[in-house]
Simulated assay, not measured.
Amino acid sequence: MTNSLRPHPRTEAPPAPLPADGVPSPRPGTGAPAGTAPARVPGARPAGQRDAFFDNAKYLAIVLVAVGHVWEPLTDQSRTAEALYMVVYTFHMPAFIVISGYFSRGFDGSPKRIRRLVTGVAVPYIVFETAYSLFKRWADDDPAHPVSLLDPWYLTWFLVALFVWRLTTPLWRTVRWPLPIALAVAVLASVSPDIGDDLDLQRVLQFLPFFVAGLCMRPEHFRQVRRRAARVLSVPVFAAALALAYWAAPRMNSAWFYHRDSAQELGAPWWAGVVMTLALFGCSMVLTACFFAWVPGRTTWFTVLGAGTLYGYLLHGFLIKGSRFWDWYEPAWLHRPLGEVLVTLLAAALVTALCTPPVQRVFRFAMEPRMEWAFKRDAADPARERVGAKGPTAV
């Protein structure tokens, strides 16, 4: 591991504050010197301005998450759909998690950070884990399905993982070789079938290296993958990935991409867990870099939706699961090329609508509750308020 991939808290720009929601949103950083135009690169933006690149990346990643979910029932009868599914699953969550790690660099365990972690991650987990469980009882006619906060169901695993990862951020910023250690943890998890399902720890541990990779990244790393040369190179890389996935589709168990089971639970020898964990990490990081290469850095019509990706992520799960419970995939025409394209477009439109500001306003009570009543007031707050009321002191 080179020094360029280690955290450098003293030489990089100050880490952006953590957002109120669970999925990181870029916050104001250090402004450009007076008289110069702000550089349009990640991590370098005028004060008060969100970074369009990360909002765009989050939106496009959540669209791919939704598209991947609607493709799953189509993969049994279409090798092409299976190949596309495997490619998307190689990088869509890793890209999301890398961004999460990048914007968690400022987590220091302070009371303010802990409050945000509770209100933006823990509370939405409790609300949506309960809501998903009750939905399954009703929609799937399964009254025995338990409401258990220890066994995340469907999409809520990400909130558990983000909570654990963010709590361990000070550790990863302290150790000398964070990424190799995180990879070693993931490898050990992949060969440990006794970990069990509590808190979906297999996913928490196997996806951990992507979060730590994000912690280790600096603005120049994003600058490098967004060069024209990287953008051009990403085209043959994606083409090769699709060709490889098309070959592997009938030969490989796609459950490897979920990172939720050990090698033994997938019917493979223990050493396959070591090989697949390292190989998939490499492939995922390469395709994630290719994905970032094509994310626009300018403000687009969907940039504003980047702030609502956690809303889209959690809310679209009800319709995805409902489509299985209510047999929406039974019509044969849905499994033909035109039907597959239509399903893809509908998924993209659905998750786009769920990321919009009106939806955010409706569900903010569950996703970003203020909850001042639940926390002790910071002793320094009255002093800050007095200073704010008097205004800045003249020099």
Score class of each variant (00 low, 15 high):
residue 109 G to K: 04
residue 66 A to N: 07
residue 27 R to D: 09
residue 153 W to Q: 07
residue 345 L to F: 13
residue 372 E to D: 15
residue 333 W to H: 13
residue 36 T to E: 14
residue 180 P to T: 11
residue 304 V to A: 15
residue 312 G to L: 06
residue 255 A to G: 06
residue 250 P to K: 05
residue 246 Y to W: 15
residue 15 P to W: 00
residue 150 L to S: 07
residue 136 K to R: 12
residue 165 W to N: 07
residue 28 P to L: 07
residue 15 P to H: 10
residue 345 L to V: 08
residue 394 A to Y: 10
residue 318 F to K: 11
residue 3 N to P: 13
residue 272 A to D: 06
residue 375 F to V: 01
residue 113 R to F: 02
residue 252 M to Q: 13
residue 304 V to N: 12
residue 218 R to Y: 02
residue 77 Q to K: 06
residue 159 L to I: 03
residue 100 S to L: 07
residue 205 L to Q: 05
residue 229 A to V: 09
residue 145 H to I: 10
residue 49 Q to P: 14
residue 96 F to M: 14
residue 362 V to T: 13
residue 74 L to F: 04
residue 310 L to I: 07
residue 5 L to S: 11
residue 281 F to S: 01
residue 371 M to T: 06
residue 170 P to W: 02
residue 179 L to H: 01
residue 169 T to L: 08
residue 40 R to W: 15
residue 346 L to M: 01
residue 76 D to L: 14
residue 296 P to M: 10
residue 362 V to E: 04
residue 221 H to A: 00
residue 101 G to S: 09
residue 57 A to M: 08
residue 15 P to Y: 11
residue 295 V to Y: 09
residue 231 R to P: 01
residue 190 S to Q: 03
residue 77 Q to S: 15
residue 119 T to V: 08
residue 390 K to E: 13
residue 393 T to D: 03
residue 355 C to W: 05
residue 4 S to N: 14
residue 376 K to N: 10
residue 140 D to W: 12
residue 41 V to K: 10
residue 306 G to M: 08
residue 90 T to I: 03
residue 156 T to H: 06
residue 247 W to I: 12
residue 88 V to M: 12
residue 204 V to L: 09
residue 147 V to I: 11
residue 90 T to N: 07
residue 309 T to N: 04
residue 155 L to K: 02
residue 197 D to W: 13
residue 356 T to W: 04
residue 392 P to S: 15
residue 58 K to I: 02
residue 78 S to C: 08
residue 9 P to E: 15
residue 91 F to R: 06
residue 336 R to M: 13
residue 141 D to Y: 12
residue 247 W to V: 14
residue 199 L to E: 02
residue 241 A to F: 05
residue 357 P to V: 09
residue 200 D to P: 06
